[in-house]
């Protein structure tokens, strides 16, 4: 059932990203190791500000100029070391083999450029198509992402489209060159609830149809459930739990994951079951406590948690698939 364990499509090794802040600097991403196999969908879940967007930007090479990547960090994509490439070499991958869908489709499309041109631009740049061929392909792409009246939409400006349509256009742009990895950063957060499921299902369908790998980033565990094979839980710049999505939902070992699940409404629960909010505040990234960053909000935290940072390890039961960074992981649900 699991794909062959040869070299993964994307291998992130010990990735750290530091950003200068008012006082000192913030480690937005702190020693993240994660791999994505070709054709696999991986979820990345965490509260806003936990560094998941910064991780996506690091993968795409979109970090702000003042951001610094740690010296031991590595990103291998399709066997190539991305961090060692020149900007020009990197651009042959970005947008072509690795594409991204952004959170807010209202601002991600250029307001003064027709939709058709925003799609065909990628095709012409990366695949060298001429104007006519690019337009034909753009039309096919719009059809593929379920845009009605695609021929008319090509000549529209973004402000003439609804939010859901705009996100579909953004997905068409991302899919244009047939990427091997799609990074979707909170693709539905800014959309109306009624169109969210449609967009997510479109992403999942395209991912399966094109045997494309996908990194689906969200603050919402519900978004990731059922659409990914594996899920990583991120907190304060670190990955604290990494497991097959089904296992993570069925038997979370990290107290934080457990708390996130408890905060989710479920159909299986009896009516009027109260939702449990996670106590305390999300961590202040400029002043992280020593030890486990979640310890101040953790019900099970003990002395060691506030002193030593736990490493991401596979569980005692020899379960290599399920790794957790916690001194006192939960046993059984």
């Amino acid at each position: 059932m699991s794909p062959p364990r040869s070299t993964p499509l994307l291998a992130i090794g010990d990735l750290s990203v530091a950003l200068p802040a008012m006082q000192g600097c913030v480690r937005a991403v702190d020693g993240v190791t994660l791999s994505v196999t070709a054709g696999q969908a991986v979820g990345l879940v965490g509260e806003s500000g936990c560094g998941k967007s910064m991780l996506a930007k690091a993968l795409m090479g979109l970090l702000p100029r003042e951001a610094e990547i740690g010296p031991t960090s590595q990103i291998h994509f399709d066997g190539r070391p991305l961090l060692a490439l020149s900007p020009r070499e990197r651009r042959t991958i970005t947008g072509r083999k690795m594409a991204m869908v952004f959170q807010d489709p209202m601002t991600a499309l250029n307001p003064v450029m027709r939709v058709g041109r925003q799609i065909s631009e990628v095709l012409r740049h990366h695949l060298g198509l001429d104007r006519r061929a690019a337009r034909q392909r753009a039309l096919a792409l719009l059809r593929q992402v379920g845009v009605s009246m695609p021929r008319r939409r090509l000549d529209h400006y973004p402000h003439q489209l609804s939010g859901g349509l705009r996100q579909r256009v953004a997905i068409a742009i991302a899919l244009a060159c047939g990427p091997r990895l799609l990074i979707a950063d909170e693709p539905t957060t800014a959309l109306d609830v009624t169109v969210q499921a449609g967009i997510l299902d479109l992403l999942a369908r395209c991912q399966k149809a094109q045997a494309m790998a996908m990194l689906l980033i969200s603050h919402d565990l519900g978004v990731v459930a059922g659409r990914t094979q594996r899920t990583a839980v991120m907190y304060a710049g670190r990955i604290l739990e990494l497991a097959p999505t089904r296992k993570l939902f069925g038997k979370p070992r990290l107290p934080y994951t457990r708390a996130l699940l408890d905060a989710m409404p479920r159909l299986a629960n009896p009516p009027r079951t109260p939702l449990k909010a996670i106590g305390g505040q999300p961590p202040d990234m400029t002043h992280l406590p020593p030890g486990c960053a979640f310890a101040p909000r953790c019900r099970w935290a003990r002395g060691r948690c506030r002193v030593e940072t736990p490493p991401l390890e596979s569980g005692r039961g020899g379960d290599h698939d399920h790794r957790v960074a916690c001194w006192y992981p939960l046993e059984g649900a």
Binding site: M60, G61, L62, R91, T92, I93, T94, G95, R96, A99, M100, F102, D104, T107, A108, L109, N110, P111, E121, V122, H125, H126, A170, I173
Partner: peptide, 11 residues
């Protein structure tokens, strides 16, 4: 954001 998007296109 649309400039970030343009960068993400690899232009």
């Amino acid at each position: 954001h649309y400039i970030l998007m343009a960068k993400a296109k690899g232009l």
